[in-house]
C-alpha cells in the first residue's frame, strides 16, 4: 500500500490536471483550482523544509569544526537573524524604515549584485585560458561567438559602419541568432518537450517511479 496509494494518487491527479487544460467546465475547473492552491501551499512548506535542512547540515559541520566552519556559522547566524527580525516585524516587514528592509537593501541586494558582477572578471579569465580552438567545429563556434559578442553591442556597429550593410557585424550576428541558432534551439526545445511529455506519461502510468524514492 505504501507504493500503490501514491501511484494511484499521481495517476488520478495527473490525468485530472491534463483534463483541466482542455475542459473549462466547473466540474473540472473547481477541483483543479483546489489542487493548484494545494500545490502553492506545498511549495511554501518546501521553503520551511529547505531552511531546516540548511540549519541541520551547517550545524553539524560547525559542531565538527569542518573546514570553513566559521563561514557556516556566519550563514546560520545571518539566517536566524533575518528570520527572527522578519517574524518580529510581521506584515510589512519590507516597508521603508524597517530593519528587514535595511538588511535587504544594504546586505542582500549589494552582495547578490556583486556575485553577478564578478562573473565578468571570471569570464575574461576563462576566455583567455579555457576557450581553445582545436578543431574546425570549434573554430566555427569561436567565430560565431566573436561575431555575436561584438555585434550585439554598440561598438560592433561603430567598428563596421563603413562596410556594406550585409557585412556589418550587427547584421551578421542577427542572422546567426535568427537562422542557425534558432533552428538548433527549436530542435532542442522540441526534443525537450517530447521528453517531458514522455516522462509525464510514464509518471502518470506508474512506469517511472524514481520520484517515490527507495528501491524501485
Amino acid at each position: 500500500m505504501k507504493r500503490e496509494v501514491p501511484l494511484f494518487l499521481t495517476a488520478v491527479i495527473g490525468t485530472f490536471m491534463i483534463l483541466s487544460f482542455f475542459v473549462p467546465h466547473q466540474i473540472v475547473s473547481v477541483p483543479a483550482q483546489f489542487l493548484q492552491l494545494t500545490a502553492v501551499i506545498v511549495v511554501a512548506c518546501g521553503y520551511l523544509l529547505g531552511g531546516a535542512n540548511v540549519l541541520r547540515v551547517n550545524l553539524v559541520a560547525i559542531g565538527r569544526q569542518e573546514p570553513g566552519w566559521l563561514y557556516k556559522l556566519l550563514l546560520v547566524l545571518s539566517l536566524l537573524a533575518t528570520v527572527t527580525i522578519g517574524a518580529i516585524e510581521g506584515p510589512g516587514f519590507l516597508d521603508p524604515g524597517r530593519r528587514s528592509r535595511w538588511i535587504y537593501d544594504t546586505l542582500y541586494s549589494p552582495m547578490s549584485a556583486t556575485m553577478f558582477g564578478l562573473l565578468a572578471f571570471f569570464i575574461a579569465s576563462a576566455a583567455f585560458r579555457a576557450f581553445r580552438v582545436r578543431t574546425i567545429e570549434a573554430m566555427w563556434l569561436a567565430a560565431a561567438a566573436l561575431i555575436v559578442m561584438i555585434g550585439r553591442v554598440p561598438i560592433g556597429e561603430a567598428l563596421t559602419r563603413f562596410l556594406p550593410v550585409p557585412l556589418q557585424l550587427p547584421v551578421i550576428q542577427e542572422w546567426i541568432m535568427e537562422v542557425p541558432q534558432n533552428a538548433a534551439k527549436r530542435a532542442i526545445l522540441m526534443g525537450a518537450a517530447l521528453g517531458i511529455m514522455a516522462t509525464g506519461l510514464r509518471v502518470i502510468l506508474g512506469i517511472e517511479r524514481a520520484y517515490l524514492g527507495g528501491e524501485d
Binding site: 575574461a124 579569465s125 576566455a127 583567455f128 585560458r129 561567438a145 566573436l146 561584438i150 561598438i155 560592433g156
Partner: peptide, 23 residues
C-alpha cells in the same frame, strides 16, 4: 552602461583570440 559593456565584450573577445594564439 552600454559603453562599458561594449569595451568589456571587446576585452573578452581579445582574451579568446590572444589565449588561442598563445596556446
Amino acid at each position: 552602461g552600454m559603453d562599458a559593456q561594449s569595451l568589456a565584450h571587446v576585452f573578452v573577445a581579445l582574451c579568446i583570440v590572444l589565449g588561442n594564439v598563445v596556446q
